[in-house]
Amino acid sequence: MYETTYHRPASVEEAAALLAANPDAKLLAGGQTLVPTMKQRLAAPSDLVDLRHIAALRGISSEGGRIIIGAATPHAEVAGDATLRAACPGLADLAAHIGDPHVRYMGTLGGSIANNDPAADYPSAMLALGATIHTSKRDIGADDFFTGMFETALDEDEIIIAVSFAPPERAAYAKFPNPASLYAMTGVFVTKGSAGVRVAVTGAGSDGVFRQAEMEAALSADFSPAALDGITVSPEGLLEDLHASAAYRASLIKTMARRAVAAA
């Protein structure tokens, strides 16, 4: 890795000030993507601003009918949190299957969605849950937050504080992992709640996470796996790589969607 300078702020304000003062700085959450990327010399931040020690960024609570998850809450805590498991087991299950146990101790929700890796799991959940992303500057709806592969609506000096969502009636995630990396080769998060049915697909889109409107319509009429039978997913705009063609991913989207609905 290239040379860098490590900082450990105690507050969001201090972190924001460090970001503002160092234009080539990067936020370091769990580091489970950033550190490997730096090791491969594919990222060269001048400064690293560690968010793991800011208490305000950590923890899960329920307020005003919404679940709030601190941005620096590690996956293992999300997976094991009783409040969340009662309100939205589908999200807890998703967190329980991100990466591997070691990654889950370190990796955080905020880090995952800020990076918006096309193969990350959390973005699909945020999108399907219609979550709100609370930052150091504003609140952003998930539909506006994810703007493309590795792209979000975040400003350079903006820090995610938490996400919140109204627990859906039903929600579940089904993923098919890449046989090598075990990242989502296709993952589908489905929800049914006050805002209707939402279906979000990760791992498959060449623009990152996206909603599947046709499935949402079909499931709104009948929230059952069979409701998806007549739908043909187009391979257009889907990722192509060694492990999956666009056509195969299109098929996986449908299969994972059916399985998610069945599990929800």
């Binding site: 490590y6 450990r8 370091l28 580091g31 489970q32 550190v35 490997p36 090791k39 690293l48 560690d50 793991r52 293992a76 146990p101 070691h102 990654v103 101790y105 370190m106």
Partner: peptide, 12 residues
């Protein structure tokens, strides 16, 4: 907690 020491800075 079991973590990957190759994916964590000593400073962290």
């Amino acid at each position: 907690k079991a973590v990957k020491s190759c994916t964590m800075l000593a400073a962290q």
